[in-house]
Design a protein around this nucleic acid. Sequence first.
DNA 1: CATTTGCACTTGCAATTCGCAAGCAAATAT
DNA 2: ATATTTGCTTGCGAATTGCAAGTGCAAATG
Lengths: 138, 138
Amino acid sequence: MKELKQRSTCPVSTSLDVLGDKWTLLILRDMVFAGKSTYGQFLQSAEKMATNILADRLAVLEEQGLLTKAVAADKKSKFTYRLTEKGLDTVPIIVELVLWGAKHCPTIADPSLMAELQSGKSAAVEKYQQLAREKALA
Amino acid sequence: MKELKQRSTCPVSTSLDVLGDKWTLLILRDMVFAGKSTYGQFLQSAEKMATNILADRLAVLEEQGLLTKAVAADKKSKFTYRLTEKGLDTVPIIVELVLWGAKHCPTIADPSLMAELQSGKSAAVEKYQQLAREKALA
DNA sequence: CATTTGCACTTGCAATTCGCAAGCAAATAT
DNA sequence: ATATTTGCTTGCGAATTGCAAGTGCAAATG
């Protein structure tokens, strides 16, 4: 696994040290908005992430305390990944990425999600954080 | 210059296709919060970005319409980079990265900026966008 | 007018990281 | 007992990164 080094003490820079690549925030997106929680589910996303990259990013995210890894309730050969509060706090970042992408890039965004975000951003953020929290308890 | 390819039509993914690396958002941060506008100024940031990476990212950002490049008013051998509206719209993303980094990573954040962000996020976003707009006109 | 300085890159190259395919081991399913 | 599912690990060629040095141009200096 790549070791994380801090390039400066600027908050933007330290955030990007953890989240600043093309895959990490997609994993978090899948957990928050698609309710995914297993390795196999993450592999099935439209962006087709490579298996070694996924394994590496999950390990970094666990090490950095954004998610926890536990043996699944139904199968011992499966793991369940859940967001911690630190991980849940990335939801506002992901939401801003959704809004920017939907406005400025050719995308196909979920209309109901877009309506929800535009009618009340912070309410939507809290709703998805709460949904993910409930998943973590189940 | 790297050509940009879209991995999927998800808004998060398309945003990350442009912004998802360790350097791009630092350039935008320097333009928005430090008022930087030249190649030499970007090189002086604490994170010490390599010159070829900077040149590449500036070219991508220009191609993607987040900033414009123009000969400087004072010197013909200098260029001035300014944010477009598309570029200014990344300010909310940067703000969320500031808040997440300041909360969860060991950072040294500007206390007056933090107070400003916590007392009214959207007001602060609009203020820094307006400051950058005024710079672009000057 | 020749020379130096500053600025904005460009080039070369070694090292790291990525992405694809294949392989592997343990737990289930048949 | 055998096959399949699940979650990785490994190997390797290709792409990207990071560092150092070099280039070209304009303005300042002598």
